[in-house]
Every structure is written in structure tokens, then in C-alpha cells.
């Protein structure tokens, strides 16, 4: 078995996203970033510093405005050139990568309101044609959702919905799970519990995880690598730039 720490999953070189509105500009630059298989990455920073922007690019749902190199190594051997896929508008290729290799836990919501908890968790598994082998039930038990399997999301508390979202991101055993402040909308006590549960589960499944959060103290205890970043504002306050490296 090869040393997992030597296997690179993401390799980014000079990737940037610029966002503009009403004369204010925000730019996120990543001069260089490598993420290896099995790593647990934390992205910590104040609100508005660009965490969601980076995660969305890593999940292939936001197009970088500039990129020198952006490759994704889904299963070790073959690298996929994400930059080229964006430039050639191969949306379906990116969709295929997300379906197979990614799980995404959104900051809020992201569940389908017309599917019950079981079917929401099972969504990606069904897409991939995976057999009903009790994974959904097991996940639900671990997440404390067994009682709620046949409820619609509208009948759940915010924390329960967040746990359903975690279940859906993990159910098809993706190589990578990206979580954008999965506990932002629940109280600090519940947040710690959910985060510990989440990190424990990805560790057990040996899934690479990238999680954004604003609470570092707790994340540190869970043994995540923190991505360094630096935010600066122009003197007139019209330009904000965040530079991420790691």
C-alpha cells in the first residue's frame, strides 16, 4: 500500500477569483496549494474573507477567473485538468467528478425539500446506482437521525438538517468531503458535537476533508491542518484581497 501522504489530490497554481459589485472588489488568490489524500484541512477566517469562494472552486461549482494550473487527481493515477474543463465549458465532466468523488456540506440548507431524510441521504448513492446495503441506516444511526428517516426536511431542526447534509455528503463514500461551516447555524455546544462527529466519521472512512470554520480552538483539538491565509484591504476600502497558501 503506497504511503497515502505522498498522494496528491488537488494541485493549484495561481488560481484566483475576482468578484465585483457596486464598485467594491474582492479577490481570492491562491499562488500555490497542494492537498494530499487523507489530509484534514481547516480553513479558518473571519466572515467575508473568502472561505466559501475557495471551497466552491475546489468543488468545481465556481469558475476561477484566472488559473495557471488546477489539476485534480481523483484516483491517484489520472489527473484531470480542471482549468481546461472550465475553459472548454465541459460542465458535464465537472458534474461527473462531483458525483463520483465529492461530498459537499453546505453552510445552510442544500437539502431537497420534497425528499424525506432517507431519500436525501441516499441521493448520490442512487445516482451512482449503489445497492441499498444499509449504509443509509448506519449513517443515520451514527448521526442520531434514525427516528427521522421518513420526515421531510421542513419537519427537522436546523441541527438535524445539518446532520442530514453531512449524511448525504458521506453516503456514497466520496474521496473528498468539503464542508462549508457545517455548524454555523447551530449553538456552540451542538456545533462542537456535530463537528466532532463529522471529523470522527471522515477519519474512520479515510476520506480527505476540507472544512471551513470560524472557530479554531475546537478544530485544533480535532487535529486538522490549518491553511494559512492573509487578508488585506486597500486604503480606500474598495479592494479586499485574500491570499491563501498551503
Amino acid at each position: 500500500m503506497p504511503d497515502p501522504s505522498s498522494e496528491i489530490i488537488y494541485q493549484l497554481k495561481n488560481v484566483a477569483r475576482v468578484r465585483q459589485s457596486n464598485g467594491y472588489a474582492f479577490s481570492l488568490r491562491v499562488p500555490s496549494l497542494r492537498i494530499q489524500r487523507g489530509e484534514k484541512i481547516a480553513l479558518i477566517g473571519e466572515s467575508g474573507c473568502g472561505k466559501s469562494t475557495l471551497l466552491d472552486m475546489l468543488a468545481f461549482i465556481l469558475r476561477p477567473t484566472d488559473m495557471d494550473g488546477f489539476s485534480f487527481h481523483a484516483d491517484g493515477a489520472n489527473a484531470v485538468d480542471i482549468g481546461a474543463a472550465w475553459k472548454k465549458r465541459r460542465r458535464n465532466q465537472l458534474a461527473g467528478l462531483r458525483k463520483k468523488h465529492l461530498g459537499y456540506v453546505m453552510q445552510t440548507g442544500g437539502l431537497l425539500p420534497f425528499l424525506n431524510v432517507h431519500d436525501n441521504i441516499n441521493l448520490s448513492r442512487r445516482m451512482l446506482g449503489m445497492k441499498d446495503d444499509g449504509t443509509v441506516q448506519t449513517l443515520a444511526r451514527e448521526l442520531g437521525l434514525s427516528r427521522h428517516l421518513h420526515k421531510l426536511p421542513s419537519a427537522l431542526s436546523t441541527g438535524e438538517r445539518q446532520r442530514v447534509a453531512i449524511g448525504r455528503a458521506l453516503a456514497h463514500r466520496p474521496a473528498i468531503v468539503i464542508a462549508d461551516e457545517p455548524t454555523a447555524s447551530v449553538d456552540p455546544f451542538a456545533a462542537e458535537k456535530i463537528m466532532s462527529l463529522f471529523i470522527g466519521m471522515v477519519e474512520e472512512m479515510n476520506i480527505t476533508v476540507i472544512v471551513a470554520s470560524h472557530a479554531w480552538r475546537h478544530i485544533k483539538q480535532l487535529g486538522l491542518r490549518r491553511l494559512a491565509h492573509h487578508t488585506r484591504k486597500s486604503p480606500d476600502g474598495r479592494m479586499t484581497e485574500t491570499v491563501v497558501s498551503g
Binding site: 468543488a59 458534474a95 461527473g96 462531483r98 458525483k99 463520483k100 459537499y104
Partner: peptide
């Protein structure tokens, strides 16, 4: 929003 969720989980255009 629902359509974007479907897009996120990897449905094709």
C-alpha cells in the same frame, strides 16, 4: 436553488 442542488450532486445539464 433545488436545481442547483441537483447540479451540485452531479446531474448533467
Amino acid at each position: 436553488k433545488e436545481l442547483s442542488v441537483l447540479r451540485l450532486v452531479g446531474f448533467r445539464t
